[in-house]
Design a protein around this nucleic acid. Structure first.
Length: 185
DNA sequence: GCCAACGTTGGC
DNA sequence: GCCAACGTTGGC
């Protein structure tokens, strides 16, 4: 299921990683990283994830290199994810999910009938990757972006910055815990 | 629906 | 490799 709205793409080149992986070999077994992933609830909401088989979905449709690199190079099974509703009323964090499967090729890039189809991609040389995400905990209500911006403890959090467009973001442990505290309140 | 911010493309 | 034009994201 589409986790992201369609993003028309021009010329993906597999070798374009000017984006540094978030966690060079410094992660130890057992370390958990924290992320934020955006989805437009009209396309795929946290409620949709709760209803999905095994409360899990493939995060297909990401067509941005930095977001791809975060998923491919940064995410591990068990990492925690803030599920963010974008283009919504209100936009904000709807719940917690976790990485259920590490990165693998996004099948939609090969599918001519998909809006995410990428003619440059081949099975031998896939361009786009996805992870699987499983719902962990729904917040009683969405924490609006406005509340995130107003919270002093969340100063500097990427999603609160004006013009923050990246659909997969790294979140510091402190920011993650703070958002969870707000969500449980 | 508007439009600011930002990423991508392509001419040079 | 620069950068203007263009397309997209996403808050409001």
């Amino acid at each position: 299921m589409p986790a992201r709205r369609p993003a028309r793409q021009g010329k993906p080149t597999p070798a374009s990683p000017r984006v540094v992986a978030p966690v060079p070999g410094e992660r130890r077994p057992g370390d958990v990283l924290h992320w934020l992933m955006k989805s437009e609830p009209d396309v795929f909401s946290f409620a949709d994830l709760l209803r999905a088989p095994a409360r899990t979905t493939g995060w297909e449709g990401v067509r941005n290199y930095q977001a791809r690199n975060y998923m491919r190079d940064g995410m591990r099974v068990g990492d925690r994810v803030l599920f963010y509703h974008s283009n919504a009323a209100p936009s904000g964090v709807a719940g917690i999910a976790e990485v259920a499967r590490a990165a693998y090729p996004d099948p939609s890039q090969f599918d001519r009938t998909s809006e995410y189809f990428d003619p440059k991609a081949t099975r031998e040389a896939p361009i786009w990757m996805q992870v699987d995400i499983r719902a962990v905990e729904a917040f009683a209500q969405v924490i609006p972006l406005e509340a995130l911006k107003a919270d002093a403890a969340l100063t500097g959090m990427e999603v609160t910055r004006t013009g923050s467009r990246l659909s997969v973001q790294l979140v510091s442990p402190a920011h993650f815990e703070r958002v969870v505290a707000l969500g449980r309140r």
